[in-house]
């Protein structure tokens, strides 16, 4: 679970009011940490794996420059390519990339927009999906 600043503020205010006169910086810190832990109903192991990793899948008729266009856009958006796998099946181009967008100023929505316009230009389909969906479906 991504912790928002508002949420931390809310927990801190709660902690201060609960501790009352006993509110020392250490006590507040301890209580806020406890609250964050207990508010998180997501199983811990799964939560830790959640990341900024995104799977990019691209298909279409093979033309020149698909990989270079996509990777140029990724580098411009400061996305890190972690893995890449590409095949030509009959005349179809298929590519799967695992990218990390943690350090990118863009979020997944922006990246989907960028890839959509590239896809239209090259006449290929490009999908961007958060890694979690693959992990949930294919890993126990």
């Amino acid at each position: 679970m991504k912790l928002t600043e508002d949420k931390i503020r809310e927990f801190s205010i709660q902690a201060i009011s609960e501790l009352g006169a006993n509110a020392s910086p250490d006590a507040v810190k301890k209580l806020v940490e406890e609250k964050i832990r207990s508010s998180n109903d997501f199983p811990e192991g799964e939560m830790n794996l959640s990341s900024g990793r995104v799977i990019l899948t691209s298909f279409g008729l093979n033309t020149t420059g698909i990989v270079s266009s996509i990777s140029a856009a990724l580098s411009e958006a400061q996305c890190d390519i972690l893995d890449i796998s590409q095949k030509i099946m009959q005349e179809f181009f298929t590519m799967i990339m695992m990218i990390d967008i943690t350090n990118s100023p863009k979020d997944i929505k922006d990246m989907q927009e960028i890839m959509k316009s590239i896809g239209e230009k090259l006449k290929v389909k490009i999908y961007l999906q958060h890694e979690d969906v693959f992990r949930f479906m294919h890993r126990i």
Binding site: T57, D83, K87, T94, M98, Y127, Q129, F134, H138
Partner: peptide
């Protein structure tokens, strides 16, 4: 790649087709 080529294609096939 932590996921097989086929696994990823299977998910895309489910959602898109």
């Amino acid at each position: 790649m932590p996921y097989e080529f086929d696994e990823i294609l299977e998910t895309i096939k489910m959602t898109e087709i």
